[in-house]
């Protein structure tokens, strides 16, 4: 579905990604793991068109997207739930969700999609006329995911959805992500919460200092010596 090939990405003179290649298969829950500053968010921002790769290609459903302007990607079927949620704080919950469905196709089904998002996150329905900035951290994360789903994406990219949440909420958010994945939405998940993610993902790549160093299925990586030492502390 998504094929990233040999991309190099730099901020000005500072190169942060070297020769990164990976693929996301239709219907899978793929995880990109790595420590702070490894370049995970940079990968997502490059796919989203906010950054341009120096080299390499990014293909989505066979189409080259590395030169497509960022605002066109939502229409192609990629939804990006950014790190730190990035809601519109002075807009209501409902307005935030409406902002998620701007593409003509998503707009046609706006009402039904909103009902679906409300069944996934009943708390959002209760709070629909409240400003997003007044929600709690967990509710904000749910709204961010809900806003991403409003685009009816083929690929949902989630950047650190567990960031800043209590352990109980983290489990809840991860369950919802699995739930979404079961409804045939491909998920690309970026996380630092390695243990949790490896137990639920279909495959994962490990990113270190801007290079992909390992890949495999969840159980394979859970038993990998390097992963155990560096990320699980076993």
């Amino acid at each position: 579905m998504l094929k990233v090939e040999n991309i190099d990405v730099a901020y000005g003179d500072l190169q942060v990604l070297w020769d990164v290649s990976f693929t996301v298969q239709e219907g899978e829950l793929l995880a990109l793991l790595g420590a702070n500053g490894a370049g995970k968010t940079t990968i997502l921002n490059t796919i989203s068109g906010l950054l341009r790769p120096r080299r390499g290609s990014i293909r989505f459903l066979g189409e080259e997207i590395s030169r497509v302007p960022g605002h066109k990607l939502a229409e192609l079927g990629i939804a990006h739930v950014p790190e730190g949620r990035r809601l519109f704080p002075e807009m209501t919950v409902k307005e935030n969700l409406e902002m998620g469905s701007l593409s003509p196709e998503a707009k046609k089904k706006r009402k039904e999609t909103m009902e679906w998002v409300y069944t996934l996150f009943p708390i959002l329905k209760e709070r629909q006329n409240q400003e997003a900035g007044t929600l709690s951290g967990g509710q904000q994360q749910m709204l961010a995911i809900g806003r991403g789903l409003m685009a009816l994406p083929k690929l949902l990219m989630l950047d650190e959805p567990s960031l800043g949440l209590s352990p109980l909420l983290v489990s809840q958010v991860f369950e919802i992500i699995q739930d979404i994945n079961r409804q045939e939405i491909t998920v690309l998940l970026v996380e630092q919460n390695v243990m949790h993610v490896l137990k639920m993902c279909s495959r994962a790549y490990v990113l270190e200092n801007g290079r992909l160093v390992l890949q495999g299925s969840g159980p394979e990586l859970l038993n990998n010596q390097h992963v155990k030492e560096a990320y699980l502390g076993i």
Binding site: S48, G49, L50, P69, G70, H71, K72, L73, A74, E75, A79, H80, P82, R86, L87, F88, P89, E90, M91, E95, E98, M99, G100, L102, S103, K107, R147, A151
Partner: peptide, 22 residues
């Protein structure tokens, strides 16, 4: 939608681009 896009761009330009706002 256009009006809301103006407010969204004012509140968080990059997030607005993620939503498909030009």
């Amino acid at each position: 939608d256009l009006g809301r896009s103006i407010r969204a761009t004012a509140q968080d330009r990059n997030a607005a681009i993620y939503m498909g706002v030009n």
